[in-house]
Write a protein that binds this DNA or RNA. Structure first.
Length: 526
RNA sequence: CGCGGGGUAGAGCAGUUGGCAGCUCGCCAGGCCCAUAACCUGGAGGUCGUCGGUUCGAAUCCGACCCCCGCAACCA
């Protein structure tokens, strides 16, 4: 604890507006960032947009907009979406920012000076109509799908990066988990790629693309995708391009480097496992500790695509399920690291089951019971230790202090391993446990009979809900706050508690005044 | 032999240091009545894709085969 934690999402390419895929990565990163802040780590969470390249020139032109205007708009739509989803990023970086561009130039100059960038040739199939290179895979029957012409083989000068030079070193680090790739299937995939295909030097610049960062030693070229975009992970935390990097203690900004986790989906795994770390080696910087690769969403068994018309946007989700509902549904939609199949029907079902009938109803019934307790003029009592109730047809004795700390251990371990969906299961278990406990102890009867046990039973319930709220916080911050308020707790105070203290039994004062609030998650009818 | 993911109850999915097959939803029966028609219990329902192997024991390890889906496009 009290370590630093630096997490990133990829910077999203501004050729399209945010959808549920971007949302997935970003919400996951937010959950982890909030979790690490909660346990006391010094945390930095970076997201942003990637704005350069021929593709953007093309899309902006189609939209009839100036480049800067166009990218401003799309970047704003991402920022808006993340605000709406209560994303707690510390910074939103755009690669079109002057500061970023300057540092990219500095870094590339350094790589050029140390001999890792050299003038070579980029060869490819060039479509004159599109004014850009095409991959073979882009072509339909060998022709450009837009212009119905056969692109010609062209070769132009391009600065190349000596990627091949770093193959052995990177492979070794990947195998030894010094540069960790998770889940392990993805690590194996990368290793087999290294071993079977190796690494070739790659093109790092373009001559015919204007919308980009000019190479400082040859302004007729602009930096090509990776060479520009990857560096956001450094410029985003304030790196000014100093080599060696100036540590924070000496007035620099590198206290957060290396990144603890780069989150991303599988489409960009390969470049993140090759080009990016090679660039860092070339610059003499440490490699990120972990790449975590999550899966794709299918919508009701189909690929999500605009042409099918099944694209789900963050705004769609928030409108239907609220901010926290949206965050929960996305976070729990799949085993984190696997592909998932989602859809409105499944979301509705999960919303009602886990949120409305689960957490929401649990809080509502618990608060209502506590109010009855107050009417009966019985005080809450923290008896603190063993309490028992009969369940599953036998008498069970629970030591709640032990149970709770075991739950916390599981929760912490799972989140440290970036098992977001599994950590949510721990919360669901707690809810289930309490629903059981309430049914078994029948507090409404105890209260009616003025049974002396009632104060203790109700305390056990409310205190455990306090723990649930804390566990819920990284996933659904607003919900956690509402629960604290319902329990009569002060949100600021709860959030400023030291984690080790907060997870101990007994944090709820016995003289607390509970408050009935609006339903946390109104049930969706039908 | 391009790469990868997957085939487990009606639907959707968990489940590898191999050890009586689990979760959610739906269905049936019962309970409770504090709660958001909620919650709790019990039940029906599975030859864990097929065949073979290793093992005292395999959804899990090995081999072969069948089927589905990504890896190309606006798209994490």
């Amino acid at each position: 604890m009290n370590k630093k934690f630096y997490i990133t999402t990829p910077i999203y390419y501004v050729n399209a507006s945010p959808h549920i895929g971007h949302t997935y990565t970003t919400v996951a990163a937010d959950i982890l960032a909030r979790y690490h802040r909660m346990i006391g780590d010094k945390t930095f969470f970076l997201t942003g947009t990637d704005e350069h390249g021929a593709r953007i020139e093309e899309v902006a032109k189609k939209a009839g907009k100036e480049l800067q205007e166009f990218t401003d708009e799309i970047a704003a739509s991402f920022q808006f979406a993340w605000d709406e989803l209560n994303i707690s990023n510390d910074r939103f970086i755009r690669t079109s920012e002057e500061g970023h561009k300057k540092v990219v130039q500095k870094a590339l100059q350094k790589m050029y000076d140390n001999g890792d960038i050299y003038l070579g040739k980029h060869e490819g199939l060039y479509c004159k109509g599109c004014e850009q290179y095409k991959n073979e895979k882009d072509l339909v029957e060998g022709k450009c799908p837009d212009h119905k012409t056969v692109p010609e083989k062209m070769s132009e000068e391009s600065y190349m990066f000596k990627l091949s030079k770093y193959k052995d070193e990177l492979l070794k680090k990947i195998k030894k988990d010094e540069f960790k790739i998770l889940p392990v299937e993805k690590k194996n995939e990368v290793i087999s790629f290294y071993e079977n295909e190796g690494l070739n030097d790659i093109s790092f610049s373009r001559k015919n693309v204007k919308w980009g960062v000019k190479l400082p030693w040859d302004e007729s070229h602009t930096a090509y995708v990776w060479s520009d975009a990857f560096l956001n992970y450094l410029t985003g935390i304030g790196w000014k391009g100093e080599i060696p990097p100036t540590p924070f203690s000496k007035g620099g900004n590198m206290e957060f480097w290396p990144a603890d986790a780069h989150l991303m989906s599988k489409d960009i795994l390969r470049v993140h496992a090759t080009i990016w770390p090679a660039m860092l080696l070339s610059l003499g910087l440490d490699l990120p500790k972990t790449l975590f690769i999550h899966g794709y969403f299918m919508i009701d068994g189909q690929k999500m695509s605009k042409s099918v018309g099944n694209v789900i946007t963050p705004n769609d989700l928030v409108k239907k399920y609220g901010v926290d509902g949206a965050r929960y549904l996305v976070a729990s939609a799949a085993v984190f690291g696997n592909d998932g199949d989602i859809g409105w029907g499944k979301f509705d079902e999960k919303y009602n089951a886990d949120l409305a009938n689960g957490i929401g109803n649990l809080l509502a019934r618990s608060i209502a019971l506590t109010e009855k307790l107050r009417e009966a003029a019985v005080e809450l009592q923290n008896k603190g230790e063993n309490f028992q109730f009969s369940i599953f047809n036998f008498q069970t004795i629970f030591n709640d202090q032990i149970l709770i700390s075991k739950n916390w251990v599981d929760y912490n371990v799972l989140l440290d391993l970036i098992q977001i969906d599994k950590a949510l299961e721990i919360i669901k278990l707690q809810v289930k446990f309490l629903d059981n406990y309430i049914t078994a102890t029948k507090p409404w009867e105890l209260i009616k009979n003025k049974d002396e046990k009632s104060g203790g039973v109700m305390y056990n319930i409310l205190e455990r809900i306090r723990h649930i709220a804390l566990m819920v916080y990284p996933f659904m911050p607003d919900t956690a706050e509402k629960i604290w308020e319902s329990l009569g707790l002060n949100v600021q105070e709860e959030m400023s508690k030291k984690f080790d203290e907060a997870i101990k039994w007994g944090g709820l004062p016995v003289d607390t005044k509970v408050k009935k609030g609006e339903a946390l998650f109104p049930r969706l009818e039908k």
